[in-house]
């Protein structure tokens, strides 16, 4: 009510919902996610929900079920009816969780019908301006003085953390990994000089880099990233074959009938084509990436094997 009041308040362009009467969906749908209200996941979910509801002709509500790195939500969704009314906004952490948790209340791959990825994004390796000339210099310094150069990351078991650990494994460097609560806190620590390096997303790093506070040393994707073609990759500088790209995507409980999954997929793709969603995803430093269910499944299977290896090699405590 308040929402409607406010949108129409100064005679904003009213959004006419297409009154398409179809068999599916005949009631509200929901997008569940496993993070607190207000995080990037929540924001993405809401924007996508807003767009999808136009195409589906039914409201799409966003439900936040935070807990245990998103696994509470995954467990919840995977046990819901595969009737097409429950979707989940998933993030890269879904693949990490498969390796990080001793036991999960769901099957990471078989428990879901994967619909499509929404966006893919690399991480950026950054240091305070003028500290390190290049990625090579950073790794050389970290190899020369093991355990002294500090990487601040956004929490134990986050993709950011594991990317740092992977850097340890693939190069001669030996970093000291310092956990913070979220990328923003890690970034503040970098600004204040408490840590030397931060690996995080473009949203966290870019504004500081543009202001000249940080130097961007490298990007973690296997190939150079279209938005930042001048930034060298980790792969081409210090660790050949290094390729870390995280993602967000939409999944549903396993066993959703094909025609419903296809319908949702086409709506997700339509939402991705809408400027609001596209802008949102790009401004988060991600590349909109509509995909097929098979592509998303393959991506997740691949990442599960990579992260499970990293977690074991780096000796990260399982939960």
């Amino acid at each position: 009510m308040f929402k409607k009041l406010l949108t129409t308040l100064p005679l904003m362009a009213a959004l006419a919902l297409p009154a398409a009467a179809q068999e599916f969906p005949d009631r509200a749908l929901r997008i569940v996610h496993g993070f607190g209200p207000g995080g990037n996941a929540d924001t993405v979910a809401r924007i996508v929900a807003e767009e999808m509801s136009k195409g589906l002709g039914q409201p799409v509500v966003v439900e936040s079920r935070p807990g245990a790195g998103g696994t509470v939500a995954s467990g919840y969704v995977s046990n819901e009816d595969p009737d097409g009314y429950t979707m989940q906004l998933m993030v890269g952490g879904h693949a990490v969780a498969a390796g990080l948790y001793e036991s999960l209340p769901y099957e990471s791959v078989d428990g879901f019908t994967f619909i499509s990825t929404l966006g893919q994004f690399p991480f950026i390796v950054a240091a305070r301006s003028g500290e390190y000339e290049s990625m090579e210099a950073l790794i050389a310094a970290a190899a020369a003085a093991p355990g002294t150069i500090k990487i601040g990351h956004s929490g134990v078991g986050s993709t950011q953390h594991l990317t740092g650990e992977l850097l340890d494994l693939r190069t001669d460097a030996d970093f000291l990994h310092i956990p913070y609560k979220g990328g923003a806190a890690a970034s503040t620590a970098l600004m204040g000089g408490e840590v030397d390096v931060v690996i995080d997303t473009g949203t966290v790093i870019r504004p500081q880099a543009e202001a000249g506070v940080y130097d961007i040393l490298a990007i973690t994707s296997g190939e150079r990233w279209p938005d930042a073609p001048d930034v060298p990759t980790v792969s081409e500088t210090v660790a050949e074959g290094f390729d870390v790209v995280s993602w967000t995507g939409i999944g549903m409980p396993a066993g959703v009938p094909d025609e419903i999954a296809d319908r949702i997929r086409s709506e997700v793709h339509a939402a991705l084509a809408a400027t609001s969603v596209n802008d949102m995803i790009s401004s988060l430093g991600a590349q909109p990436s509509p995909s097929t269910g098979e592509e998303m499944t393959a991506l997740i299977e691949d990442q599960i094997s990579v992260w499970t290896d990293v977690i074991e090699s780096a000796g990260i405590e399982k939960r």
Binding site: T203, R206, Q208, A211, S276
Partner: peptide
């Protein structure tokens, strides 16, 4: 805090990524 993160999220929606500049 989380509320600030949300407000920053709203700026990002508008294509402004708040930073030192």
């Amino acid at each position: 805090d989380a509320v600030m993160a949300l407000i920053i999220g709203a700026l990002i929606l508008n294509g402004i990524i708040p930073g030192p500049r």
